[in-house]
């Protein structure tokens, strides 16, 4: 409602949170999920190194093609990996694992690194088109051997950045991310 426009963003969120805190745990449950991250390093089926790829000047978009088209960045198909790795580093232990997946025609069960709950809608394309670098949210993946979440991608993280933007729409409009 308009009459709340005088309150600061922080006050509005606090009010909301405080009211919910009066014994209703639902919001807290959702927030817990929101703040959750994974410790994916040990769990990945293949020890994929972003560093090894990035240092050869392969751009992020080469594999994560979705970022310039829509909401989902996407992960490359096994076929795409094999496009290079049927020739490159074929003797590597990890690449042999990849080759096995390809030969069995099975998908690689990657463990998700960055995840948002089902009620959060994020669009990669909007951010990439506005000139936001991948590293702003994903950290310097170039230096990571195995990708890990470097920031807690919670609502505060989003809002802190959007508070600095000239256009404050995404700050005040829940529907930008929740629908």
């Amino acid at each position: 409602m308009r009459r709340l426009a005088g309150l600061s963003l922080r006050q509005r969120l606090m009010l909301g949170g405080a009211a919910a805190g009066f014994g209703i745990v639902l919001v807290a449950i959702l927030l817990l999920v929101l703040t959750s991250t994974t410790d994916a390093a040990d769990e990945q089926p293949i020890k994929f190194s972003h560093q090894a790829h990035a240092k050869n000047d392969i751009s992020c978009q080469f594999c994560h093609v979705g970022v310039t088209h829509g909401p989902v960045a996407g992960i490359p198909s096994v076929e795409k990996c094999m496009g290079c790795h049927s020739h490159i580093a074929t003797a590597n232990e990890e690449i042999e694992k990849l080759t096995q997946y390809w030969e069995k025609q099975e998908p690689i069960p990657w463990v998700r690194v960055n995840r948002q709950p089902s009620y959060v809608y994020f669009n990669h394309y909007s951010h990439v088109a506005a000139g936001v670098g991948c590293g702003s949210c994903h950290g310097d993946v170039k230096t990571m051997t195995i990708a890990e979440p470097v920031v807690e991608m919670n609502m505060g993280f989003c809002l802190d950045c959007h508070a600095e933007q000239e256009n404050k729409d995404a700050l005040y409009d829940c529907a930008v991310c929740h629908r």
Binding site: M1, R12, G16, A19, Y119, D173, C174, H178
Partner: peptide
């Protein structure tokens, strides 16, 4: 909108419609 204690029901300034934020709703 004004009766929601958690601001789950609020007005979108840019779309000019009424938004229901399910993850806020208690």
């Amino acid at each position: 909108e004004p009766v929601c204690p958690v601001y789950a029901s609020h007005h979108s300034e840019q779309e000019n419609i009424n938004i229901q934020t399910y993850n806020r709703c208690v």
